[in-house]
Design a protein around this nucleic acid. Structure first.
Length: 417
RNA sequence: CGGGGUGUAGUAUAUCGGUAGUACGUCUGCUUUGGGAGCAGAUAGGCCGAGUUCGAUUCUCGGCACCCCGACCA
């Protein structure tokens, strides 16, 4: 995309009242816009990142047989009364229409997915399976905070799995641990993300969270470096914390943010909706469920918190809004710089690489500063100097390393996603 | 929801009980062209409501919004 066509602009300064690094940088760089506390618009650059994260998650969910659907946000009160959560869930948004009918704006979708799949499950032969969606969730957080890390409306991937018994559910649940680890590895926060033992609520000993170390987080976890797992502070009793895997006591405390979680629902939701199947003996059995969530915006914000630096955003290749940022210096009309830029742009595009081309008539300093702020992994400068030397100047955003390379070398460095 | 802080132009800010100033942005012209450049001109502002006052952006009260701490967060 030609940057001159991009309708958003960067800002030199962050809004005075923002403290969170993710909010400051994402707003300055024009990736998001805040409509109200905890409610954000994703602008073209930000949406590209969000969609890249979404696609990685989609691939991983599909890899374990997840079938994608899309359920509504507007959900009838009756479904929520069936599980009792119409009254017990404090952060439920409730809306009333002109006829007096009440609905919830979905904060999660157990109340919808269970009656949905009930239509299709009758025999043990129909199990197991898993279905998921990417959907806006609404939660009336009393205090939205930390930029996009804790919002009132946010996009979440929620998957639900359905099984004949606990053994089967647990086997799938265990598989999901690996799948989740893949997701966080691929989006670029694998090194600082830990499988964490957390509260299981009233119907399971533990749930598991994926916690990423960052001072912007609001949780405290105790990490066992030997096992690469952690324990959430919420389940530590009497200051006694030991690694649930090896029993080791040598844990280190870190502040972290929960980027995903997996939960054994068992029959918590199948029971109230009478979700059952007939086993081989023709007897009715309750369907056993698991659920698995990842907040996309929170993942995006966490990447910014972990990787962003004093100059701006720093995107990993896998989720960057563009693969390459061409910065043309001094080009205009049909001069040589513009022509060379166009040529490079066309070649990269034809290789399937996504390119942002800064074709604007601005001074070098401004373009460099903005390029650093936007944070595309590879910057390529095209100027009269580089043309004279028959090379391109490349800069690695993450390391700051600058070098001159020939066309072939440059093309070899750029790979399509 | 409890506590604290802050509300001035698109952004960041200054001053002041009596004409609201600066920088960036934006627009016009010229210059400049490898790290948010310069000159000249232009554009645009006091969160809302009530009160005190001759006069309120400023003081008082109420509301609202945003940020922070806490509580909450299947």
């Amino acid at each position: 995309m030609r940057q001159s066509q991009l309708f958003t602009k960067t800002q030199k300064e962050a809004p005075a009242d923002e403290v969170a690094k993710n909010a400051k940088l994402l707003i300055r760089a024009g990736f998001v816009d805040k409509l109200q506390a905890g409610v954000y618009t994703y602008l073209p650059l930000g949406l590209r990142v969000l969609k890249n994260i979404e696609n990685i998650i989609r691939e991983e969910m599909n890899s374990v047989g997840g079938q994608e659907i899309l359920m509504p946000s507007l959900q009838p009160k009756e479904n929520w009364q069936t599980t009792g959560r119409w009254d017990t869930m404090d952060d439920l948004y409730k809306v009333i229409d002109i006829s007096g009918r009440e609905n919830a704006l979905g904060p999660t979708h157990e109340e919808i997915v269970v009656p949905l799949v009930k239509q299709f499950i009758s025999s043990y032969r129909d199990l197991p399976f898993a279905t998921y969606q990417f959907q806006n969730k609404f939660r009336m957080e009393l205090r939205a905070k930390s930029g996009i890390l804790r919002g009132r409306e946010f996009i979440m991937k929620d998957m639900y799995s359905f099984h004949r018994n606990e053994t089967d559910m647990i086997a799938y649940y265990e598989k999901m641990k690996g799948v989740y680890a893949n997701v966080f590895e691929r989006v670029g926060i694998g090194a600082t993300t830990f499988l964490t033992f957390a509260s299981g609520g009233s119907f399971s000993k533990y749930s598991h969270e994926f916690q990423t170390i960052t001072s912007a987080g609001e949780d405290t976890i105790y990490i066992c470096d030997k096992c690469r797992v952690a324990v959430n502070n919420e389940i530590i009793e009497d200051q006694k914390h030991a690694c649930p895997e090896c029993g080791g006591k040598n844990l280190r405390a870190e502040t972290s943010v929960e980027v995903g979680n997996i939960f054994e629902l068992k029959t918590r939701f199948s029971a109230p909706f009478n979700l059952s199947y007939k086993d081989e003996d023709g007897k009715d059995q309750s369907v056993v469920m698991g659920c698995y969530g990842i907040g996309l915006g929170r993942v995006l914000g966490t990447v910014v918190e972990v990787l962003g630096d004093e100059k701006g955003l720093v995107w990993p290749d896998a989720i960057s809004p563009f693969g390459v940022h061409i910065v043309e210096l001094g080009g205009s009309g049909d001069d040589i710089v513009r022509k060379e830029s166009q040529k490079l742009y066309d070649e990269l595009i034809s290789k399937g690489i996504e390119v942002l081309w800064d074709d604007r008539d601005l001074r070098a300093g401004e373009k460099f500063a903005e390029s650093d702020l936007i944070g595309i992994p590879l910057r390529v400068v095209v100027s009269s100097k580089t043309i004279a030397s028959e090379s391109f100047e490349i800069k690695n955003r993450a390391t700051g390393e600058v070098s001159l390379v020939g066309k072939d070398e440059l093309m070899a460095m750029c790979k399509a996603k």
